[in-house]
Every structure is written in structure tokens, then in C-alpha cells.
């Protein structure tokens, strides 16, 4: 989470209009869900990895890191997709070629879709993205809460870590029962602190004229026609390539 966030606000494309990133990621998602997955999945992974690593200069390791966990899930569950269970006369567990193809398709489709999200997460700061939700019709209150939570996550994580280290320094985690007790105490304290903090935040906001709306400036980001055209071209190339390759395979 923290590593993703760091790349999001330090990558080379962070100052691009978030709409451009949304177009590439969103377009990619649509392609992943509609095109033949055997070819579109890998092509999309390549495109998104290229955009993230070559375009936005995010280290390959970060991209692979984001992809690793869901990929792991997928690879462990794929074999079960390939199996089919037949209960008609007795219990039959079989693996048919059709089942294997299905498992492969699901896996590749998911990986293609995931790579789009990985690209978006690694290249677009939350602060740029969330205001756009508002323009897309999400209610202001929801957007405000999302941004507040985003800000508080970091404060909370910091406090939780510090609290846990302080407890550990005083042997709070030396045995299993003690660990449980310490963790319980920590959570209770953090909850209370969070409430106090919320109260003080309200004072701070009121001092700056808060009257129920957390309005802030959104950064000015010009849309680049050139980049939009480029994104469109790339998506089109993936679509064509995927369809043609798929014909070739069939």
C-alpha cells in the first residue's frame, strides 16, 4: 500500500491529466473483458508493463510486486477450474481439454485486467484521481470521506506501528496470550485516539472556515491531445493484434 502510494506520486507521469490514465486503464479493462483472452491477456500485460515501466519510469520490480499476489491466487485456483466434477453416477473428477482451456482463459483474462489496475495504481496519485470521481457523478460526501480516509490511513498506520513497537519493547508480545492482550489494548487505544483526533481535526477545520464542505483546489492538468491519440492508437493496436493472433491460433 505504502509502496504503491510512493510510486504513484513520484512517477514520471504523475503530472499528466488523470483522465489520460483512466482512459488507458479503463480502455484496457474493456478490452480484457471483451477480446479473446488467450491473446488479449498477454498483450495487455505487455502494454501495461511497458506503460508503467518504460513510460512512467516505475521500477519493474514494483509492477511485478503489485501483480504478484493476485497472480499467486490465480495460479493456485486455476487447476481447480480445469477439473470438473461429475456426480451423475458416482463421483467422477476429470480434467478435460475444454476445462483446461477454460482455466487458461480465465487466468489470462484476469491477469490482463489486473495489469490495467496495476498501471493505474502505480502511476496515478489518489489526490488526482479522487476528484475525478466527483466529475463522474459520485456524490461529494462520498468523495470527501474517501479522501479523508486516505489521509487518515497514513496517520493511523504510523501510530499503530509506533504503538506496537512500544509494546514490543516492553515485552508485550513475548508469549502468545500476552500478544493477544497487547493487540487488544492497542486497538482500543487507537480507537480512542482516533476519536480525539477527529474532534481536534474539526477544531482545526472550523478555524479555517469549514462549514460542511471540504472544498480544495484540484490541480490544473491540461489534457494532451497527442497523448490521448497515442493511447487510442495503442488500445486499437492491442485489439487488432489480439483478434488477428487469435485467428492465427485457431
Amino acid at each position: 500500500m505504502l509502496a504503491i502510494d510512493r510510486h504513484a506520486w513520484t512517477n514520471r507521469w504523475r503530472r499528466h491529466h488523470p483522465g489520460e490514465h483512466l482512459l488507458l486503464a479503463g480502455g484496457g479493462l474493456v478490452l480484457a473483458l471483451t477480446l479473446p483472452p488467450l491473446t488479449a491477456g498477454p498483450l495487455l500485460c505487455l502494454l501495461m508493463a511497458g506503460a508503467t515501466v518504460v513510460g512512467a519510469a516505475v521500477p519493474m520490480r514494483a509492477f511485478l510486486g503489485v501483480m504478484a499476489l493476485p497472480t499467486g491466487f490465480m495460479l493456485t485456483s486455476a487447476p481447480f477450474l480445469a477439473l470438473s466434477l461429475d456426480l451423475r453416477d458416482g463421483l467422477h473428477l476429470s480434467c478435460s481439454p475444454a476445462g483446461a482451456t477454460l482455466a487458461l482463459e480465465v487466468t489470462l483474462r484476469s491477469l490482463g485486467a489486473l495489469s490495467c489496475l496495476a498501471f493505474l495504481a502505480l502511476t496515478t496519485p489518489v489526490a488526482e484521481l479522487v476528484p475525478w470521481l466527483r466529475r463522474l457523478g459520485v456524490p461529494a460526501a462520498v468523495v470527501e470521506i474517501a479522501l479523508l480516509i486516505y489521509r487518515l490511513i497514513f496517520i493511523f498506520a504510523e501510530r499503530a506501528l509506533a504503538g506496537q513497537q512500544a509494546q514490543a519493547a516492553r515485552q508485550g508480545y513475548s508469549t502468545r496470550p500476552r500478544s493477544l492482550k497487547s493487540l487488544g489494548l492497542l486497538i482500543a487505544t487507537l480507537f480512542q485516539r482516533a476519536l480525539e483526533r477527529a474532534r481536534r481535526l474539526e477544531v482545526g477545520l472550523a478555524a479555517r472556515g469549514y462549514v460542511g464542505e471540504l472544498r480544495v483546489l484540484t490541480p490544473e492538468r491540461p489534457l494532451s491531445r497527442r497523448r490521448l491519440a497515442g493511447i487510442g492508437g495503442l488500445l486499437l493496436a492491442v485489439a487488432l493484434g489480439s483478434v488477428l493472433l487469435d485467428r492465427g491460433l485457431a
Partner: peptide, 16 residues
């Protein structure tokens, strides 16, 4: 930290 609520510096300063 009791006062900064926005995601970025610029945004936070623009609030008032």
C-alpha cells in the same frame, strides 16, 4: 496532523 486533512500540500492550503 490535527489540521492537515488533504492529500497534497497545495490542496490543503487552498481550503481556507
Amino acid at each position: 496532523d490535527d489540521q492537515l486533512f488533504s492529500a497534497t500540500v497545495e490542496q490543503d492550503v487552498s481550503f481556507g
